[in-house]
Nucleic acid binder design. Structure first.
Lengths: 198, 198, 198, 198
DNA sequence: AATGAATGAGCTTTCATTCAT
DNA sequence: GATGAATGAAAGCTCATTCAT
């Protein structure tokens, strides 16, 4: 399945993937329409269905693709030996910013995949979504927790940080032009705040 | 505007408001359909448009109404003199539970309003949403912050608590029957965890 | 099911039924399009789906309705005591012509239902189609077969007659205006030919 | 026209013709899709339109081709001197079976051509279809009619036989594998029944 | 006031046909 | 010649909205 799509020129593959990511990340699965994708990336209506069986098929393909690409990029992160949790967390965000070179909407899309609840596609993306979450967990588990472990319920702190970072990303995309450097600066600020708290 | 609606029998007003709240809180603005509301509260399709100009008009009315009602309830909260932040936060949740007597879906709906991003309605609800947020802030500012103020960036802790409480509420509504007492118990548990952290 | 449709004004019900019968009888289930029905009887696209769940639902409703109506008309035929097979067969065709007063395409539609093989609707119409066939058989079994029974394989002769009559009907509808009287004359001629054969 | 097609290798010509015959005979003109032909005979989509202007052009070509081929085969039949009608009729069916060596779906296709009523192609195939019918008539007119002529309207009997034989063929193709010998046996049986009738 | 029949724009999907390679 | 990517019109169906009763 989807071999046909993979035999397209890489440039066009990416144009379609980017178009789908942009629309899906902004409107979620159900509100995203083929017409919008036609407008966004100039690929005709019929072609989407030439390459993907139907709308759930398209969504699950692009979601899986995005998750896999993200996992690949993350797997190539150089995790500094003995880095503390916060350093590592920042590095992950840096990594996401580097994904944007090829897939500008991927960081936002990753977040929207995690929140997607439509029953038509939930089953289809459950597994890769789960794997992505696990990879992130594993990365973060390599951190030096000596600082955090002093606090009995540090897991809640981590949740808080995740929520904050997700919100900062959404804010970034809401601005006319997303600036990766500005985003990273914001993330750093918030991380520092929490670090001091401990 | 909407005087017509207010001249309806209160019972029917509330039936419609509850129907709209239930559907909007579950599916968000765009996925909510007139047919669903007809099914849920047995008021005919045409009547919705008789009282409310169109879908955005209906949403903004019900959202504003819900926000106002919540603000009224909250304004009547008895804030114990010198209560600490966490006690107060819990009291707010108790207050939400009391709203459920008249509008069972209001607590969930309040959260969904906050997250609503559809461009067709965002402008229409911006102001009351803002006011509601401010009222909550003001309430919370009356708390005794001596415990929290030791921590330079305690505002972030507060955010975390808010996220957690919102998630617990959503979980509660996902169960077959929402149990206010069970919900309040869960909230208390989580508050205690954080308190100990400080 | 379909109570909604039955609560329409009889005139409109019949307009829709006639529109559907005309289109379905001419093009068969799959080639018949909603747009064509809109053109033919001026009822909007959406309304067809307001009254009937989907295309198979529409087809099976109209087919069942047509078959039932035909059975009713046939049941009210006055079968002359001791009439021979051919007299009876002609009477059935007369009866079909009387159906045309309310449903001009019904005789043609009945034939097309019998031939319908689309898997999406075959199951849905199997039962009424079967019953209609049985009613016709029962009617014909009341005939005086003394003439026919002399011939060992008279059933084949009957088949032949049926094929011929069906073909004559199709020819009739192909002409610009279907003339019932002309059609009945043709049928009579062919029946006479066969009678003489025996 | 279609010289281009004829300059193809004979093997490929036949592969395409067989593919088209198979699909057209099973689904009729309108339901037959290019994709299905691609699947069935592995010739690319574009090529069909390279050789045939459009769908009606393809259909009329293949239909004419099939009819001509059938006429050729029939013209080469050795008609036994003084054979009666039924012997001759059987011989025609034997002849159809021999066509299957090169074009396995031709016998079924011939029948489907006769029934084809789509306005887009009816005109295009009218003439060859007519000629084929005439050739068959002429062949059959060479029969010894002494037995039949006793019956004033024996032409109708002939129609009946034709309908029966067509139905037997359709049944044969519905089975997983069409067995020519089994089919011929069935035909013989039915012919015998009728013979006894006279 | 109240109903729900009626409409049509818009969505997903199919398919004959075109065209660059 | 041969391929299959690409297109867009049209199909079945949904849904906010209007309107006659």
């Amino acid at each position: 399945m989807n071999e046909k799509f993979y035999s397209l020129k890489k440039e066009k593959q990416d144009r379609m993937i980017n178009g789908a990511m942009q629309v899906f990340s902004q409107y979620g699965y159900r509100h995203s329409s083929t017409d919008e994708m036609v407008r966004v990336c100039g690929v005709s209506k019929g072609l989407w269905f030439h390459y993907f069986e139907n709308k759930p098929g398209l969504y699950s393909f692009v979601a899986s693709y995005g998750l896999k690409y993200a996992m690949l990029e993350i797997s190539m992160m150089t995790v500094p030996e003995g880095a503390d949790y916060f350093t590592l967390r920042y590095a992950v965000e840096e990594c996401k910013m580097s994904m944007m070179k090829k897939y500008p909407y991927l960081p936002l899309f990753l977040n929207s995949i995690v929140r997607e609840e439509d029953p038509d596609v939930e089953k289809l993306i459950r597994e890769p979504r789960q794997k992505y979450a696990e990879q992130l967990s594993e990365i973060m588990m390599q951190a030096d927790y000596t600082l955090l472990r002093n606090h009995e319920d540090y897991l809640l702190l981590i949740d808080m940080l995740d929520y904050t970072i997700e919100a900062l990303l959404a804010d970034g995309y809401r601005s006319p032009v997303f600036s990766p450097s500005r985003y990273l600066m914001e993330v750093q600020k918030h991380i520092d705040v929490m670090k001091r708290l401990l």
